[in-house]
Design a protein around this nucleic acid. Sequence first.
DNA 1: AACTTTTCACTACAGATGTAGTGAAATTAC
DNA 2: GTAATTTCACTACATCTGTAGTGAAAAGTT
Lengths: 125, 125
Amino acid sequence: MNPPDISQSEWSVMEALWERSPQTASETTKSLRQTMGWAENTVRTLLTRLVEKGAIITAENASGTRTFSPAVKREDCVLAEGQSFMQRIFRGAAKPLLVHFASNVKLTPDEVRELKKLLDQNTCK
Amino acid sequence: MNPPDISQSEWSVMEALWERSPQTASETTKSLRQTMGWAENTVRTLLTRLVEKGAIITAENASGTRTFSPAVKREDCVLAEGQSFMQRIFRGAAKPLLVHFASNVKLTPDEVRELKKLLDQNTCK
DNA sequence: AACTTTTCACTACAGATGTAGTGAAATTAC
DNA sequence: GTAATTTCACTACATCTGTAGTGAAAAGTT
């Protein structure tokens, strides 16, 4: 099963859960209220929608409160988002995408070294 | 002025106009009806919305029919989309993004060579 | 048990998006 | 100049998103 579409706001919730799970709604709320400035119910709505989408699953903790955990792996979602982005903006072509980012972002020499090594491995695969 | 938000469907229209402009609505329609399977009015609606957003501007051709042309450069829009994507999925960090794509796409040895050269230039900048 | 706080199911509501349809006005073709 | 075709302004309408509010039920507190 492919990861479902996850909207921008929903993505923030997923990040919170990928970082630590399971979490109760109030726990998730607590961290996101800070970073996002969201009301309690906003987070709850997003959690509900993510459950509907099948992106997270619920369980109960010892005290009987519902908890939430990711049902999809971050890596899979990143892959899906990346592919959709590449499709939309670069018509699915990998090279222009990499050219774009390689020319438009700042990297340290170390990062450059590491990326070049990765590219070499890509060739071999 | 920054490029406005351009939705996925709208992006297809922009691509048509970036490729050739000015175009009348029916010209744009003709090409997109093929590739996208859209009804005439769908394209017209998207054109209207893009005008409202300031992404394209109108003029008239010799026969008095309205024509459409991009008001924003493709490169600028790609930059904006790229940054928004990087922000959303990689919290704005360039390296993880490049690592992700470098490890998850297929490249020819030639492309790898070219990208490595680009990376070197990045360092120097 | 009564009060307080939490949890949660429902509801709300505006703006964006995808995807057209209607019907009048303008142009083109005879 | 009448018919056919094109253009275009409006309207439509379901879904998704962002961002909550209400109010009842459950749980915790004293």
